[in-house]
């Protein structure tokens, strides 16, 4: 009986030791895999940083060349280099427009990179959001008219004086949303609404355009996040516009979101901004 007990005890100890050894081996294996992953992650971070730096450098250089070209064409179009024929003037004006688009594209990439790195300074100035919306609408109206799109303004008589970076909100948020609505609406109308409440500004742009599929929704506000078919409509899209808009809105303590019932059913983009941040 005593012998059997001893044998059982030895077997239990042996089983326990085996189990411990197995566990230790499993731990080591998991550790080695984690180590491999950690090293890959580090290498990826370095590669990403290098790529980011290169992208920043190239964008900066291209922006410089485009700006010089832009100035030259503006000079020709405006007669700074003497009188030129109407044909040359027209060519220069066309080239100037293209240069401006080029600068805007490069600026989008640079801005996105800077926002991601947290190297963007936001001004805190008091301005009227409603005036900014009206300014942008009047600037964008010719593009809407060209496509025979109606723009309906529902701007409530509220308090729209806010503190924030006027230029960034105007260019990256208001202009971007209206510009997108015009670009992605082949026909129909655009409704721009503004209201206030709870110390917040509620701004929305609704269109009867292409709409957003469920598949596209998750990548809408991501870096370089094109909608599946958006590139077919707007070949010049960088995919950074909504990403930048989100960064700017969130830097002001606000929220931005999109709603759509699906493809071909239009979409509505809403921005909620606190009056001060």
């Amino acid at each position: 009986m005593a012998d059997t007990d001893t044998q059982n005890a030895r077997a239990a100890t042996k089983g326990h030791e085996d189990y411990e050894a197995e566990l230790r081996a499993a731990n080591e294996t998991v550790y080695k895999h984690s180590l491999e992953l950690a090293r890959l992650k580090q290498a990826l971070e370095v590669a990403n940083a290098q790529q980011e730096n290169l992208l920043h450098f190239i964008s900066h250089e291209i922006k410089g060349y485009l700006t010089k070209g832009q100035d030259a064409f503006a000079g020709i179009a405006e007669g700074d280099y003497g009188e030129v024929s109407a044909q040359v003037k027209e060519l220069a004006a066309g080239a100037l427009g293209e240069m401006r688009k080029g600068v805007a594209t490069v600026m989008d990439i640079l801005d996105a990179s800077n926002l991601k790195n947290g190297t963007v300074m936001f001004k805190k100035e008091t301005f009227d959001f409603k005036t900014a919306v009206l300014d942008v609408v009047s600037q964008q109206k010719p593009a809407a008219d060209e496509k025979q799109l109606g723009i309906q303004l529902n701007l409530g008589n509220g308090v729209y004086t806010m503190v924030g970076d006027q230029e960034k909100l105007r260019e990256h948020v208001i202009r971007n949303l209206i510009d997108n609505a015009i670009k992605y609406t082949p026909s129909g109308s655009i409704v721009i609404e503004l209201s206030d409440g709870d110390n917040k500004i509620h701004f929305s742009v609704k269109d009867s355009g292409l709409g957003i599929t469920d598949e596209d929704k998750p990548r809408l506000f991501t870096e370089g996040g094109h909608g599946k078919d958006s590139i077919k409509v707007n070949v010049h899209s960088t995919g950074y516009g909504l990403f930048i808009a989100k960064q700017v809105v969130e830097a002001h303590g606000g929220k931005i979101w999109a709603e759509s019932e699906g493809q071909g059913k239009g979409s509505r983009f809403t921005v909620e901004l606190p009056l001060s941040f």
């Binding site: 230790r24 731990n27 080591e28 550790y31 080695k32 180590l35």
Partner: peptide, 10 residues
């Protein structure tokens, strides 16, 4: 003791 030789190298 927990993760083996690889952790020593780290």
């Amino acid at each position: 003791r927990l993760f083996g030789r690889a952790s020593h190298e780290v």
